[in-house]
């Protein structure tokens, strides 16, 4: 009985508050930066693609709407030859962003992705890739990975010792 009265009071108090009407679409809502909507692919601070086509976003995706195909540059850098998201299926859960080891895939507050044509909701890499670093400034996966790429030889990643000398007998 007490609970019922409390609930009625809580709802009743709302009758006294001022009405609020969102003026959307004329007035755009101010959404927090971590709001989960349209997905983008970001770049490293040096402007190179962040995505290394590891497929973790694809496997984390509960609706299987991400398709990534790996390719490799001459110097050993992995990158996605194809990166495709079917936004007709995406549920904006953000698991892909959580799974991403390179901070490449990020969700943005831009939620206005509706369309009349389902096929135009299939976004390819060109549609997803943006120019900047997004929410994670300063992070470069290649600076911590052990694989050598152009401009970062073995032993030059963060916390790495120079390559071993196999003929050295010292302990």
């Amino acid at each position: 009985m007490r609970g019922v009265v409390q609930s009625l009071a809580a709802v009743g108090r709302k009758l006294l508050t001022r009405k609020y009407t969102a003026g959307y679409p004329e007035v755009k809502p101010e959404l927090p930066a971590r709001y989960r909507a349209r997905i983008v692919l970001t770049r490293d601070p040096d402007g190179q693609e962040r995505c290394v086509a590891c497929n973790l976003c694809a496997v984390a995706c509960p609706v299987d709407c991400i398709d990534v195909v790996k390719a490799e540059t001459e110097d050993g850098r992995w990158y996605p030859e194809t990166f495709r998201i079917n936004f007709a299926r995406c549920i904006f859960c953000g698991y892909c962003e959580e799974a991403c080891p390179t901070q490449a895939i990020q969700l943005t507050p831009d939620f206005e992705t509706a369309d009349y044509e389902r096929s135009s909701l299939v976004y390819d890499k060109d549609d997803l890739l943006i120019a900047g670093e997004g929410k994670q400034a300063g992070y470069t996966y290649w600076a911590v990975a052990g694989k050598a790429i152009a401009g970062k030889d073995k032993g030059e990643a963060q916390g790495e010792a120079p390559p071993t000398d196999l003929r050295d007998l010292c302990p």
């Binding site: 497929n55 496997v59 299987d64 709407c65 991400i66 495709r84 998201i85 079917n86 096929s119 390819d124």
Partner: peptide, 15 residues
Amino acid sequence: WRMSGRTAQDLAGRV
């Protein structure tokens, strides 16, 4: 079980 990309694979322009 965990095959990914089923709803996005091979779909340039189609669903």
